[in-house]
Structure formats: C-alpha cells, structure tokens
Amino acid sequence: MQTNIHPFEKYPFDVKKLPADIRREVEHFDFYTTSRAIEKSIVSDNLSDSNTLLCWAYFVWIDAMAMQTGAEILSSGESALKIIAEILGKEPGHKPSLKLQKFINDEIKKVHKANKWYDKFHNIPIESLSLKEAEDFAFFLSDCTNEEKFKEKEYQLWLRLYNEKPDVYSTGVKEFYGFKFYYLCRISNVLWRDLKRFEEARPLLWQIINWPSVKDAELYSYNISNAVQLLILEAVDKRDEIEFARLTELMISKFGEINQYRAGLGKGELTLVLREIPAGKILQFALEIGDLKNIRLIMDHFFAGEVVLIRDGRIKENMKKAKALIS
C-alpha cells in the first residue's frame, strides 16, 4: 500500500511557514529520517507553534506507511495523536489537526477491526464462504495492513474468486465483465508486493500485460501500468538497462493500445499516471543511464502534464535535469 503514502492531496500544514531547516527536511522526505529530524529541530529550538507541531505529527504518522503493519500503525498513530492532542489543547478548533486526527483514528479502528475479523474467520474454510462473503472479506483485508497473516488469507480469497466467479454475467439490463482479469491482477499484486513470492507472481504479471481482451484492460487500465511498473522497478534494482528500456517502451505501447480502443468508442485518452516514489526511481535510473531517447519517453509519458504529484525536492531537481537534457 505504499502506492498511497500521503493520505491527503495537500499537506495539512503550511510548508511556507515552516522554519527553513524543517522545510528542507520535508522537501527531501525519507521514512523515519524526516520525522526524527523535525523532532530534533523542534526540541533544540523549543518550537511550539501549531503548524510546525502538525508537520511533525504528520510525518510521524507517515512512518506507519513504510511497513503498514498493524503494530506500526498503532505505534506511529499513538505517537502522532499525542502531538495532535498538544495542538488541540491550545487550539481546540484547529481544523487541519482535527482532520488528521480523524484519519488516524479511522485507520487504527481498521486495524482493530481486522484483527477481530481475522480471529473470527481465519479457522473457517474459505470454501464454506459464499462468493459474496469471500469478496467482501478479500476487499476488507486489502484495506487493512501488510501483515502476512492477512495477506496470505487475502491471496487465497482472490484465488477462489478467480477460479469460481463467472468472467461475464448480465442482469438483463447491464453486462458486467472482466472479473478474471481483475482477480488475476489482485492475486499477482498480493503475491509480489505483500508476500514477496516473486517467482510465482512473475508469470501472472506477464499474463496481465499480454491479456488478449483490450476491453478488460481498458476497464482496469491501472492494473496494466501496475504490472509493468513492478517489473520496471525490479529492472532498476537489478541495474538491468536493457530490460528497463524495453519495459518503459512496453508500458507506453500498452497504453497506446488501450487509448486506440477508447478512441474507437469515442472516449477520451487516458494519461499514464505513476505515483511519486516509483516515478522518481524510474527517472533517477533513466538519468543514470543517460539515454536521451529513453529520458524523453519517460518525461513525455510518465510525467505528461506533470500529473504526478511531486513533493520530493530530489525528484523535482531530476525533472529539471531531464527537461534540460531533452530540450
């Protein structure tokens, strides 16, 4: 779930009003490092204004997004809520703090609820659940934490749905389709991202990428980009320049096929959108390779119209470097 690190579109605090050293830490965000550096500045400079304290609470909470285990969410959440309580003690109606407080409390409730649900259902054979119960349980577990006990059960539930739920059905008024593709995407994602069973997931990712029905792929286009993205990031980790270039071109090609299909339906073009951290890693590696054609493709398609929400100062600098190289 690291694909949704920041819970809000905008920071709940005002970056411009932060002390310069804390503002730099925010611009060069890193898990754990940023929150500790902010705390150090607050303690050493005896800072107590609500904006700075909320910034600290926010990044303490964001640390829970690094692992997203139940224990991490409970621990980081408790620490962040203590800081927020200090703010609200002085300003009871401080709306940004109340917003973050509610969000954290809701996430903590999910963890407690997940634990209770897991305790209730984990000994019940999956086959004894109805397909509706299996799907509800799978969706719920996908929204909880990355603890292995949850993810193994989630994987088994998606697998059952893939094997048993009809790929297409009609209500007589509307046709629903693409279930096999969707559940396969869920299965591969849990195997790769959560259970780290890469060799099991790899052929499933390629099955998704080469799915024969563009109608299904268009309906769930994010899953095509997600599948290719996972393989691109693996190529980055392995420093495999040839595979990296092949996969970035493949990503663009697949979205081209989807958009061609959409054009035939009279639909507008989809923009390929990656989140900040994976987009940053891909751009960084492209710059290290120095292939101008590849850099241009990445900037033109992965950062088209700057639809990626970039907060990290290092990524912004890399974008400037890339634009200078291809201009």
Rank of each mutant, 00 (worst) to 15 (best):
K174Y: 11
S76A: 06
S44W: 12
P278I: 00
F121C: 01
L297D: 14
Q101T: 04
A279Y: 12
H301L: 09
I62Q: 01
Y261I: 14
P19S: 05
K17H: 11
D119L: 08
F181Y: 00
A57V: 04
D312Q: 13
D106T: 03
L18R: 05
K254L: 13
E152N: 08
L159A: 15
D216W: 14
D194P: 01
R193L: 01
N226Q: 13
N146I: 00
S188D: 07
K153Q: 13
E25T: 09
K151R: 08
R262A: 09
V214S: 10
F181S: 00
A235W: 02
N4F: 15
K132Q: 07
E78T: 00
D21Q: 08
L159D: 14
I224N: 07
K151G: 12
D14K: 11
W192N: 02
Y220A: 04
I252K: 11
K323T: 12
I315T: 05
V173P: 04
K16R: 09
K174N: 08
E257W: 15
K267Y: 09
F137C: 07
K151V: 05
S75Y: 15
G70L: 02
E107S: 05
Q101E: 06
K90T: 01
K323G: 07
I310A: 13
C185N: 00
I326D: 01
C185V: 00
K99L: 03
W117N: 02
L141D: 03
N226S: 14
E27F: 07
T33M: 13
D136M: 10
A322Q: 06
A20Y: 05
R23I: 01
A71V: 03
K215D: 15
I315D: 06
N210R: 10
K254S: 12
G290T: 08
I209M: 10
F140I: 10
K180M: 11
W158Y: 06
A279C: 05
D312A: 12
S130E: 01
